[in-house]
């Protein structure tokens, strides 16, 4: 790869309903580190409509530049338009490195964009480094659900990756203000072949902001089990502001709770103060999402369950017998 043609580190700044996603601040930390190692600039790409407030705020977090790509046609995420706009921008400005969060937008846009630019990409990276020999990215990701860690090096004038949540600290405000550059994209609406009919908000939960997560798995056995878990929420709210119910994937597949509460590899990555796993066996794909929790409590009727290997406190038994006694005692302690 020639060092001359492509330059700078770009990160994709994710804006949802006019608000910056916190994952972008984690990405900024990683982007800054890479830009320093390359001795090149760090730019954030923002796409949407009315991005001024977000752009002004982000400028204080130390990027060199913010590309503010605005259009009324960008008011809601659409893969076809997003990939098209970014493809044109990349062909014109030629970034060396591009990072997006392993989020709803990043997981679709980044691989499609990489293909169009004839670049390669690794998704869901947990670490990235610059190879001092050629300025390319050395990309580390967990494979086999998390049982193996692999390090890759790939071809492509733009070195691309999506980055897992909670793999980097949040960026802090700096002294310098980044320069905001306005871009008015030229969007051909006729490329849109998929029409949006409606958006349904079912269950909006900020699992990543929770202090305490009480998660139920297949062992919960039904909707009543989640109702039982919900009775714990007020008890824990005496001590913590954000107490949220989470779940493993089988609980969602069984229709006991909405998929927005899924924790793990293909759900949310969380790191609360307390993670309470009830009727969850500790499969690697679930652990991938909760292993960074400060304190883990597991309730499981199988004393050999893997979840106990990941817990600080373990209770062996049927949760149906354990939790009522737990609640009664809680009031009296």
């Amino acid at each position: 790869m020639s060092k001359k043609s492509n330059k700078d580190v770009w990160i994709y700044g994710e804006v949802t309903d006019g608000e910056l996603d916190v994952k972008t601040l984690e990405l900024l930390t990683m982007g800054k580190k890479l830009a320093i190692d390359l001795d090149e600039e760090l730019a954030i790409v923002l796409m949407g409509d009315n991005l001024d407030p977000v752009a002004q705020d982000l400028a204080g977090f130390g990027p060199d530049k913010i590309y503010k790509v605005e259009s009324p046609l960008l008011n809601r995420f659409n893969g076809e338009i997003w990939v098209d706009v970014l493809e044109k921008l990349f062909k014109e400005l030629k970034p060396r490195v591009f990072l997006a969060s392993q989020s709803f937008v990043g997981i679709e846009v980044a691989p499609r964009l990489a293909f169009r630019l004839d670049c390669e990409i690794i998704t869901d990276c947990i670490d990235l480094k610059i190879d001092p020999d050629d300025g390319s990215l050395i990309k580390t990701k967990a494979i086999y659900g998390g049982n193996v860690v692999a390090t890759f090096k790939q071809k492509g004038a733009t070195q691309m990756a999506t980055v897992r949540e909670k793999a980097n600290k949040l960026a802090e405000r700096g002294a310098e203000l980044g320069k905001i550059i306005d871009i008015k994209p030229d969007i051909d609406e006729s490329i849109v072949k998929i029409q949006s009919l409606e958006v349904v908000r079912e269950d909006v939960v900020a699992l990543n902001k929770a202090d305490v997560i009480i998660s139920g798995g297949r062992g919960i056995g039904g909707i009543e089990g989640f109702e039982e878990l919900a009775t714990l929420v007020p008890l824990f709210k005496e001590s913590f502001a954000n107490v949220i119910i989470g779940a493993s994937r089988p609980a969602i597949d069984s229709g006991w709770i909405s998929s927005n509460r899924q924790i793990g590899l293909t759900g949310e990555m969380v790191a609360p103060d307390f993670y309470i796993a009830v009727g969850i066996s500790g499969a690697i794909q679930h652990i991938a999402g909760m292993s960074k929790s400060k304190t883990v409590v597991a309730i499981n009727k199988d004393e050999d369950s893997n979840i106990f290997n990941l817990a600080d406190y373990g209770v062996v038994g049927d949760y149906r017998e354990i939790l009522p006694a737990f609640k009664k005692k809680w009031g009296g302690v």
Binding site: A311, V316, I322, A325, F326
Partner: peptide
């Protein structure tokens, strides 16, 4: 291999599930 994520689990004591539930509280 991934870094070891295992923790030292202290099991809550008690002769019955109810007692363990109380001790967990």
């Amino acid at each position: 291999s991934p870094p070891n994520m295992e923790r030292e689990c202290s099991f809550i004591e008690g002769d019955s599930p109810e007692e363990r539930g109380e001790n967990l509280a």
